[in-house]
Design a protein around this nucleic acid. Structure first.
Lengths: 201, 201
DNA sequence: GCCGCCATTGTGGATTTCCGCAACCCCGGG
DNA sequence: CCCGGGGTTGCGGAAATCCACAATGGCGGC
């Protein structure tokens, strides 16, 4: 699953890199162009990206932007032979994981790739738990969501009842169902679950 | 308060930049060397840093590292005449706000400076609230902290009492004092206050 | 030795929360 | 027309929280 996705139009480089990675026990797959990769891209892909900056037709940064637009969040390393500073700055500020000049020490590159893979693993874990919470929130009915918001605002059931113009008993029922659907046992856990899932990107 | 702190060993550049900023209504102050700035540095300073990369004696990045070690978190823009990519990459990965080559469009630089100032304002706000929470936590006695942790773990008073081998009444007292000292009225608010202050850096 | 802070506990009552049991209304499908 | 889901409500009781009032003991500092 955790794979290095290599996009470079120079076959010699693709081969050299995939060999280097294999020697470290890292799986990789290569594409000769941005277009080719886009055609194969699947949001389930896990691992990291290693993109050449200059390629015929679509460039590495452009591919990166397209992938981001598609929701891809894999850590991305850019490789360049003749890059300039604005390019590097733009890439990093756009969220690239690294920007490396060719040629470079094999070890340095492989190390960074490994860090990128580790980061992806971590990000995937967080993304998964965030997704779980989102799904659960989505499974709530409208009324339940209203009640949940009020609970998170620290309001007492009686206050919530007054605000929504319903009986306290009804609030209790919604409250119980919110806890049940969200998989928590108390308001504190609910707050923490949402805080963890909502923030910290 | 919000001031641009300019460090460059070229007086002409210092003058040009401070003039440019003044024309935008932005206050600035200049230093001719990293050492001079360090001597004046005060952790209360607010605003952003604009550092020249290459200077006699201490370089911009080195100054940046020293300041970080001192707790300075002001957004930092690096200016360079002859920088290379690894330098730019290293600076940004170290948390620099931007890395700009001289010469550059005045507008571009001034715009970025303004963004940096805005970021500092936002960071200062968050830092302040985080500090408040930390102080409050610090004002808790040992027992109160233990009880607070248990509350955040969603435990019932009776359970907490059993774990700490004390009467439930005592837990209630601690609980009340925790809420009071932390400035919240419910466990939910407590959880949220800590979640906001602890995470999201 | 007295004072203040911290930790501790008890009593008793007002308030809230949590729940099982039972219902009713409305509405969109099959 | 019956069924299911969503929203609603009542009753009543067990359990928990919240609090005012009251009090004891230890410990470090003046």
């Amino acid at each position: 699953m955790s794979t290095v996705h290599l996009v470079d139009d120079d076959e010699a480089i693709r081969d050299a890199l995939s060999w280097l990675l294999r020697s470290r026990g890292i799986a990789s797959r290569s594409w000769p162009s941005a277009e080719a990769f886009l055609a194969d891209y699947d949001s389930e892909m896990r691992g990291c990206l290693v993109l050449d900056i200059r390629m015929e037709a679509m460039s590495g940064p452009e591919l990166f932007d397209r992938l981001r637009a598609l929701g891809c969040r894999m850590p991305t390393l850019f490789l360049t032979g003749h890059g300039d500073i604005p390019q590097a700055v733009a890439a990093l500020k756009n969220g690239a994981f690294d920007f490396i000049e060719k040629p470079c020490h094999d070890n340095r590159l492989a190390d960074r790739v490994q860090e990128a893979l580790a980061l992806d693993t971590e990000l995937s874990r967080r993304e998964a738990s965030r997704l779980t919470v989102r799904e659960r929130v989505h499974s709530l009915t409208g009324r339940e969501r209203e009640v949940m918001d009020a609970i998170l605002a620290g309001k007492l059931n009686k206050v919530i009842a007054a605000e929504l113009n319903i009986a306290m008993r009804t609030v209790e029922v919604h409250r119980a169902r919110v806890f049940e659907k969200m998989g928590v046992k108390s308001a504190v856990e609910l707050a923490q679950a949402l805080a963890l899932a909502g923030r910290e990107e």
